[in-house]
Amino acid sequence: MSTHAARRTGSVFCGLLRQELQTIAQYRWWLVAMQASVVVVPLISLLVWRGAMANGAEPPVTRDYLTTYLVLVSVVTMLTSSWTARFLAESIRLGHLNAWLVRPCSTHLVAVTNNVSEKLAKLATLLPLIVVLAVPYHRDLELPAHPGRWLLFLWALALGATMMFCFDVIVGSLAFWWDDVAAVDRFRQLAAAFLSGALIPLSVMPTAWGPFLQVQPFGYAVAFPIQTLLAPDAATLWTGLAMQAAWVLLALVAARFVWVRGLRRYSGAGA
């Protein structure tokens, strides 16, 4: 992409972002209710784990690690999640994609801005809830003070979000071939929830699963970004960064391939 095209795309992105935020402002109560529900799962996990440890359970990680992880997990899960697949599949099936395909702009830009704008709005509502959640456990929270570690965390978050968005585009694009991709999307969401570490930290899963958990992609969307804040050793960190970059690259290439092949089959239903 040339500098000129990048500047144009940036300008359209900003315009769409402003518009999305205006729309979100009209549905603000939905946003608050949704974020309250996002905090509930890690809160329950936190209470269960701390209760189990108080009664003598010995997980393979420390109480501080577990507390910090479960306080952060809702924010990280929200920031790296994507919800484009269902909408993309619907616009392919019903022909709503027509309106975007005739515009001189990437069809996915609107989905990207929708993701970014909702995340900004959700962050504004989620952070106060997280602070409320963190207050009773602040003595057990282990967060780094070094800005470099936070930059690394932001980098891992951005790559995790990119990868999940690409997976969404791949699943949504299957609608070029299949009438209903809901089952595939549900399966992918289930796999992501379980294997990303959003429900249960990967570090407390059976040791025998270790090799598999290290190579599967979903862990690089939630568990790994949190890991960058939880004092990992250098080897684990660099391996993780390389694996995450490889998965993101693969996801980008696969999403582009499926999208371009799918467009050739597009029938633009309706007018």
Partner: peptide, 16 residues
């Protein structure tokens, strides 16, 4: 969900 003017502004950026 937004006004026509907002849509026009997006097209202003898109078509430079």
């Amino acid at each position: 969900d937004v006004s026509t003017r907002e849509s026009l502004k997006i097209h202003r950026s898109m078509y430079e």
